[in-house]
Amino acid sequence: MPGSSFKKAEYFMCPSKDYSNMKNVDNASDIEDDMSDRVYTIDSIHSDFFPNLPTYLNPLQNSLAYAIMKQHFVNPKDVVYQKIVTHKNSVRGVHFRRAGPQEKVYLKSDDVRACIMICGGLCPGINTVIREIVCGLNYMYGVDDVLGIEGEYIIFYSRNTITLTPKSVNDIHKRRGTFLCTSRGRYDTKRIVDSIKDRGINQVYIIGGDDTQKGASVIYKEVEKRGLQVSLAGIPKTIDNDITVIEKYFGFNTVVEEAQRAINAAHVEIESIKMVGIVKLMGRYSSFIATYATLASRDVDCCLIPESPFYHEGPGGLFEFIEQRLKENGHMVIVLAEGAGQEHMAERMDDVGMKDALGNKLLLDVGLWISQEIKDHFTKNQKMAINIKYIDPTYMV
């Protein structure tokens, strides 16, 4: 939505079954009595610095192919609960405006100049997303002017753009990687917005993960500050599946399937030779890939994740569990997310906390470290040699 910003609008709801008595307030504290248990919040997008923007009928209403959409346009007042399960007397909680096509739009199709850019690492399905944006804008909304930024934020300063048409993106979903290229690094927000303004761009589609979406938010604030009629749409892209609110991201299922292949390869190896197989999967601070792949595989004996701290020695520790499994089966498979056990490594290796270009802490290689820790423990304490097969399929998935 052009000229939009995020705002929290608060309402209180009567505890009775009849909610027709709903009252809009700017702040919960403005209500004289304590209504905190009946206040819920809406994270809303509204035209704050463009209060009188003209609107136009959605082009979908004139398309025979999408005529059914007339029955399914999203009402601007529709909201979605952040928490699906609530109790009778619990706080109403945060709600979000429901996404989807609405009856009115803020730009005529002929006036739209859109651009698409990608930041961060690779993820299965990026090219499909690019293709669907281009084809959707063209076939559904009649938009012909779409640019592709060949790189990430910093490339916005140059003229590295290509024209995207349904024909040019027709088969890119069959290719691996990304059609538009990508990278990581810092950028100059003001120069990006200068470029957006100079090129006459009024719709920006930004595909990226957590850092990219933070950057998009900063760019939006600069757009708002200048009073530009520009829409920014952030499309979450993260293999780790770790951006709040969205349940599952494009490419996640593919990653889990590929991770299972690595686990299966480890299981075949260790079952034949009687050893410990360790598979390290992506997941800095969240373990969706490791957890889903473990549950789907059924060949995993132990899954180590950053959300659940573990310890090595003593009763109930990792070493004791490994010993028990080896006595029972003669082999075992351990899956670990790359962010698991970082606190143990930092203690034993005097980690200085190095960071990448975006300020994120660089993780140590927990797979190699824990492999050596297991070897050392069983060699010294159990007086037994232990064979380990370590697999890191990071760039395979």
Results as ranks from 00 to 15, higher is better:
residue 48 D to L: 08
residue 288 F to W: 12
residue 13 M to G: 08
residue 206 I to H: 02
residue 249 Y to I: 00
residue 302 C to K: 15
residue 239 I to M: 14
residue 142 G to M: 04
residue 216 A to V: 06
residue 314 G to A: 04
residue 265 A to K: 04
residue 67 A to E: 00
residue 47 S to T: 05
residue 343 E to W: 08
residue 139 Y to S: 12
residue 163 T to I: 13
residue 54 P to I: 10
residue 73 F to K: 00
residue 15 P to D: 07
residue 80 V to Q: 04
residue 221 K to R: 14
residue 195 S to Q: 10
residue 147 L to K: 14
residue 292 Y to T: 01
residue 158 S to F: 13
residue 190 K to D: 14
residue 63 S to C: 04
residue 177 G to I: 13
residue 344 H to E: 05
residue 95 H to I: 00
residue 1 M to A: 09
residue 134 V to G: 11
residue 148 G to E: 11
residue 391 I to W: 08
residue 273 I to C: 13
residue 165 T to H: 12
residue 185 G to Q: 01
residue 347 E to L: 14
residue 17 K to T: 05
residue 84 I to G: 02
residue 175 R to L: 15
residue 262 A to P: 07
residue 50 F to N: 09
residue 177 G to Y: 14
residue 8 K to T: 14
residue 229 Q to W: 00
residue 17 K to A: 10
residue 388 I to K: 06
residue 208 G to M: 01
residue 242 D to M: 02
residue 369 W to N: 04
residue 324 Q to A: 13
residue 83 K to W: 03
residue 46 H to V: 15
residue 366 V to A: 12
residue 225 K to H: 07
residue 124 P to G: 11
residue 332 M to T: 12
residue 101 P to S: 14
residue 311 Y to F: 13
residue 189 T to R: 12
residue 198 D to T: 03
residue 381 N to H: 15
residue 144 D to W: 02
